[in-house]
Amino acid sequence: MLNALDNTVMIKRLIVKDWQLVKKSLAAYMLGGVVVIGMMGMATPLMFNSGAIMMITLMIVIGARSAIELVVNEKKDQTLAFMMSLPVTAQDYALAKLGANLALYLVPWLLLVLGMLLVIVSTPVTNGVIPLVVLVSVFILLSYCCYLATALLTYSEGYTVTVMIITNLLLNGFIFWIIRMPAVHLTLEAPTASWNSTTLGLLAAGSVLVVVVLMLTAYLQKRKTSFL
């Protein structure tokens, strides 16, 4: 008889499989990431700003691509049936997808965020922008979790892309909204990162939402009775 541990083995295999499938894209993102961090490291205003824009773009592209490539396309390309013929339950499969996506997204996301913070700390860019950069990055992560959840729960390209568009539109609104907050814009030019109750509250709310979205996805996935 098999026990639960064997399923962990299967979940790991599925994650490794997903890693093999997106290795090519990941290599391209890594290449892009090195170039962008190098650009930002040139520390001229033009290079820094275009690097920052490319960095945000890269973060969004990595998230969107991984959700589409690993989740939606599995249904679209009809490889889902192949996967489900393997010794896994729908829940194992969803868990593996969640794990693979998070691992594959969180690693580049963390690298990019750390790289960006490194740029800010070691260049003439004032450290006061750190809360803004962190909050925007967390918002991008939250957006990612939202459309990953949509992809995992619906396997529909239409719904996933809709959520992507909405979250990307909201990102602009979010940036605009927090920049106008006195708690944020008054400290942008400060020599050190100044976290206050507003920014810390937003950070906490963002982090909690990320966890809630992921847990809700796992819960709803477990309640599904029909797969394929």
Partner: peptide, 24 residues
């Protein structure tokens, strides 16, 4: 479906709408 994991080790399934990974 409770014991599907164990069962699937011994079941081989193929269908007309099943596709394999196109880039592999």
């Amino acid at each position: 479906p409770a014991q599907q994991v164990q069962a699937k080790y011994d079941i081989g399934f193929a269908s007309d709408d099943m596709r394999l990974y196109k880039n592999q």
